[in-house]
Nucleic acid binder design. Structure first.
Lengths: 219, 219
DNA sequence: CTCCTAAGTGAGTGATTACTCACTTTAATT
DNA sequence: AATTAAAGTGAGTAATCACTCACTTAGGAG
């Protein structure tokens, strides 16, 4: 296998473990995602997961040494997949190196794209947000993927915008916090707090981006 | 007891249960808050709480029928206290009925005020945010206090601002979501995600309010 | 067909859980 | 000093937990 292929597979998490899944293993993952999302990791029992997956409890531990390993093997692929677009070089170039007039439309595209992903994986989003607080392993993965990779790129782009006088002069960390608060606040409301409301998703996304852009524009 | 006094006490949660607390009972509450905040409700054991409180395990169940009742008796007073300023008539009048030029400074005052309260009760804030997802009882309390009381007042004020052409013409629910996302996003970052950073709290509050006001101003 | 290994099983295990209860201690009242 | 009720106790309990292990089944290679 070439180094390149290896790298891509590492990113996409399609190495052995994820690619060749036994049917029963898929049932286990599906059941675990459902139950973890419903009652939280700590309140979920392996016996209940086994029951919902139509599998013997021992089968779970054949594939995952511990209950926590099951959680991690569910959450970390989601986290890396969710942040993949940020690493795609053509995307990164567009967002972070093109003139700032395009930032708005690109943020819009990005949010729409990641919104669809969140929509298709709402239970996983829920699990990540709920369990992050309690599991240092997940926090580390988050730091690796976000603080060390995405955050610096973001910051560079913000500095450029500031130089051009297009951005408020407040600390980058604050700006990033405001953007993420707005986006996550929308996603959490949309998929966790009130998923059953009649949402006009496209409009909400547009309004959210407008809010962010005007909130951060130089006055 | 007069009806008025009764009412105030109901609001302030200083009825028997909360006022005349045994020393041991206070130790239990303190220990429970600490441990719930550290490891989450589901992963906290009553034996550990008893141990940290220097109390026999039976003592906990003398005062609280179940573990969940202990959680509720911790969380609901916090929620009502946190939202109390919104009910204080002089405050409500100021925020919701005065001309909109004052909205900004009043929001600033309010946020600074609630920020101090959150600062003093950071572990409780953490518990509420973490456990809300899993306990319908807490969600109901939240709806009672927020959706039925604060939300309508907020909406009325927003409508007035819209009539005067001071506010973007997007749905009130979206506006409220954006405001709350920004505020909660700040509080969560400040007290849960990165409490150990060197925070310039006053500046962050000012910047956050600026962000909200500019984000929501009519263009 | 014969191996062989991985997948799957489910009864069993020790630890831990929330909660009970018969009992003792404390403190205020008569 | 006697009485009483609430506060406090900790050994005990049934249920549940994550996890183990000896075993069976399945399927591909030689």
């Amino acid at each position: 296998m070439t180094d390149f292929k290896k790298m891509v597979e590492t990113l996409e998490q399609t190495t052995e473990k994820d690619r060749k899944l036994t049917p029963k293993q898929e049932q286990i993952l599906k059941a675990a995602v459902e139950i973890f999302a419903e009652k939280g990791y700590a309140s979920s029992s392996t016996s209940e997961i086994a029951a919902r997956a139509n599998v013997a409890e021992g089968t779970i531990f054949r594939h995952y040494k511990t209950k926590k390993e099951l959680l991690i093997s569910i959450v970390t692929p989601f986290m890396t997949k969710f942040t993949l677009p940020f690493f795609a070089s053509h995307f990164a170039n567009k967002v972070f190196e093109k003139p700032p007039e395009e930032l708005e439309s690109l943020l819009r595209t990005l949010l729409k794209n990641r919104f669809e992903f969140a929509k298709e994986n709402a239970p996983l989003l829920r699990i990540v947000i709920q369990e992050m607080a309690f599991h240092p392993e997940l926090q580390e993965k988050f730091q690796e993927v976000f603080l060390k990779e995405i955050f610096p790129k973001f910051e560079e782009a913000l500095n450029q915008l500031k130089d051009k006088g297009k951005l408020v002069e407040i600390p980058n960390a604050s700006i990033i916090r405001m953007i993420i608060s707005s986006v996550v606040g929308f996603l959490v409301t949309r998929f966790i707090i009130a998923p059953d409301l009649n949402w006009d998703d496209d409009k909400e996304i547009d309004d959210t981006i407008d809010f962010i852009m005007h909130g951060l524009a130089r006055k």
